[in-house]
Design a protein around this nucleic acid. Sequence first.
DNA 1: AAATATAATATCGTATATGATATAGGGAGG
DNA 2: CCTCCCTATATCATATACGATATTATATTT
Lengths: 228, 228
Amino acid sequence: MGIAADREGRSGPVRPASIVDGVYDAIYERLMALDIAPGARITIDVLARELEVSQTPVREALSRLEREGLVRKAHLIGYSAAPQLTRKQFDDLYSFRLLLEPEAARLAVRNMSPEDLADLEAKAAEMRRGGAPADRSSRYSHFARSDAEFHDHILRLGGNEVIRSTLANQHVHLHIFRLMFHTRVTQEALEEHDRLLAAIRDGNADGAAAAMHQHIERSRDRLLAAFD
Amino acid sequence: MGIAADREGRSGPVRPASIVDGVYDAIYERLMALDIAPGARITIDVLARELEVSQTPVREALSRLEREGLVRKAHLIGYSAAPQLTRKQFDDLYSFRLLLEPEAARLAVRNMSPEDLADLEAKAAEMRRGGAPADRSSRYSHFARSDAEFHDHILRLGGNEVIRSTLANQHVHLHIFRLMFHTRVTQEALEEHDRLLAAIRDGNADGAAAAMHQHIERSRDRLLAAFD
DNA sequence: AAATATAATATCGTATATGATATAGGGAGG
DNA sequence: CCTCCCTATATCATATACGATATTATATTT
């Protein structure tokens, strides 16, 4: 049947460049929204039917997600959403961040231009305003996203692309969100961001590194409650 | 001859090897052997014909390699082997290693058991013996592989799985090999390994971290020649 | 002769089909 | 009544087919 022509006709929602990208985004969205719960099975052809695409792009998207640790694949059994972070994975992840992000903050102070700072300030201001007063879960989801962008922005300014892309691929904020989508400890984080931003603004590299270090440690401590 | 042979599943019932894994290894091998030059086009169906499999597993293997940065994909154009590391990528990569590996060495000293140490010693001894006196390029390829295993082993002992898997996915040693497959500076590296190993053996965590730091810095300096 | 337009080819991106494997459920035997 | 085996179904892994797009070569025009 003329599926292809059919789909071509109703361009409908913004069609990403490739179908695979669209599928990837759609799955990511469902994971982020906890529409697919941690550990839940993900069957390829169900997904393909729901998204009205063939199995091939679904496969490729899942393959990407697997490489990023967001889904797991069991040979001849199938895909499933990654389970909740274990305590050990959590600890490892935060140790990892503590080794990289403070240094990246230090580098950011050294390398950035005035325009870069302005961009960062704008992003922080946007975070402070917060999202629309939607339901709590989607509000936090919005925060998680903004927070990820804020951190990513600093990493970008730091200039070390290996550090940046590596942390991006860890999807820290998605995991965190799944750990505690029910809480609302965003206020403290915002204050820590402000302290970090102040150090950056002052061109205080050591201070920025220290502020980033403290921010991550506190974030870790706040989240530790989720393991009790 | 197909590739699906000689793949051993882990414990348990004899799991049929997946063709994708075989294709992945085959492509990796060609990249490592410079059989596929940096930047060279990789056409899916040529590869599929050569390996005597269908295009589907080739696609999935290439997708994995792409996520690892070993091949690049241009939408509607095709795959190609990743180009040689640029100077900036090289610098970023070594800065990244310097932030992580010394700490991992420190952790390794703290966490490892006597058996772990014995394993590490064995691996180091094996490296010292070196490979058979084959042609120079394949000998260095062998060294690159052993070196990768040595470092990975230490990272494993460190216990932080995020650090370990992240560095493994950078494929540092493959890139390095492609940078200077023509040189033979392995002797110095072996001596640095020995110093590192000595510190580990003595339970000297700070010393191990320092030795690792120095080893990576020197490795970087040796390779810098490749950019002149 | 150079440049543009047009046709031919190669290769990708996507869809569908087929065979293989695991899991679940029911029936026979102990 | 329980256990084991066997069959049925769902799902994956792979193969093949088809349409779309880029690249290359050729021809025509200026």
